[in-house]
C-alpha cells in the first residue's frame, strides 16, 4: 500500500469537489482495511468496501426494487495476504451492509487457523454463509464472490458460469498472462484496494457523520470477529444483542 500516492489522490479529490477541506490517511497495522483517516484531530476507521462500486451497486439492487424479498447471502473470500480475522471483519460488515440487518447469531467451523466456514442469522431472518480462507498459496490473487438470493432475482459480483474474478485486460506474452482491471479514472494508477480506501476517506470528509458511525461499527466488528471464531471452541452458536440503534 502506497500511502503517499493515496494521500495525493485524496488531496486531488478534495481540491476538486470539497475545496478548503483537508484530511490525511495513515497506515494502520490493526485489523481493518490497513489505513485510517486523520481528520480534525480524530482518527477514523475506514470501511472502504462500503463505497466500493460493486457493493454499492449490489446494495442498490436490493433497495431499488430490482431484487424483491432477499432471503440469503452467499459470500466467499480467499486470500494469500490477509489474515483470517481481516477477511472475516470485512465479510461480517458486508453481511450487515448488504443484508440491511444486524447479525443476531453465528456459528463457525475453523480449520488450521486459516479457514473458517461461518453460518449467520440476521435479525430479520436472512441467512448468510461465509466461506473464508487465508490459505491461498503465496502470490495468488485474491478470489471472492458475493451473491444475494431473493424471491425475485439473484444478484452477484461474479458472472454466471465462472469461478474466478474477470479482468478488463489480459496481456499474453512470453508464455505468461498479465491481468489489469482499472476502475477509476480520477484515481488511475492506484491499486484497486487503495482506490476504495481513498474513496472511503473522501466519503468521511464529505459526510462527517460517517466518522462516528464507522468507528462504532469497527468496535462491534472486532468484537464479533473474536466471538464468532470462538464458537469453534465453545461448540455453540454465539448470540448478539441489538447494538446499532
Amino acid at each position: 500500500m502506497n500511502i503517499e500516492s493515496m494521500n495525493e489522490g485524496l488531496h486531488r479529490l478534495l481540491e476538486k469537489y470539497l475545496p478548503g477541506k483537508t484530511a490525511l490517511l495513515e497506515t494502520d497495522a490493526g485489523i481493518g482495511c490497513g489505513a485510517v483517516l486523520k481528520k480534525d484531530g480524530e482518527c477514523v476507521k475506514l470501511l472502504p468496501w462500503r463505497v466500493e462500486r460493486r457493493f454499492t451497486e449490489l446494495k442498490n439492487l436490493t433497495e431499488n426494487g430490482t431484487l424483491e424479498e432477499v432471503s440469503t447471502l452467499r459470500f466467499a473470500v480467499m486470500s494469500a495476504e490477509e489474515s483470517l480475522r481481516q477477511l472475516l471483519y470485512r465479510e461480517l460488515d458486508l453481511c450487515e451492509f448488504l443484508g440491511k440487518s444486524e447479525i443476531r447469531s453465528a456459528f463457525a467451523v475453523v480449520s488450521g487457523g486459516r479457514t473458517a466456514n461461518v453460518l449467520i442469522k440476521l435479525a430479520d431472518g436472512k441467512s448468510v454463509s461465509i466461506e473464508c480462507s487465508a490459505a491461498l498459496p503465496e502470490k495468488t490473487s485474491p478470489l471472492d464472490r458475493h451473491e444475494i438470493i431473493a424471491r425475485r432475482g439473484i444478484a452477484c459480483d461474479r458472472v454466471v458460469d465462472t469461478q474466478v474474478p474477470q479482468s478488463s485486460i489480459y496481456l499474453f506474452r512470453d508464455g505468461e498472462e498479465t491481468r489489469y482491471t482499472d476502475v477509476d479514472s480520477e484515481l488511475y494508477g492506484l491499486e484497486n484496494k487503495e482506490i476504495w480506501i481513498v474513496r472511503a476517506a473522501f466519503a468521511v470528509v464529505k459526510t462527517p457523520g460517517l466518522a462516528a458511525q464507522w468507528n462504532r461499527t469497527d468496535r462491534i466488528l472486532r468484537r464479533n470477529v473474536e466471538s464468532i471464531l470462538n464458537t469453534e471452541e465453545s461448540g455453540k452458536p454465539v448470540f448478539f444483542q441489538e447494538e446499532h440503534a
Binding site: 439492487l61 431484487l67 499474453f172
Partner: peptide, 28 residues
Amino acid sequence: GTIVCDCFGPNIYHNGAPNDRYTVQYTY
C-alpha cells in the same frame, strides 16, 4: 504478444425486476 480487452467489464449481474432476465449492471 496479444491483448484482449473488455472496456466495459467486469460488472455486477442480476436477473431481477423488471423483466427477470439475466442482466449486466454496469458498475464502474
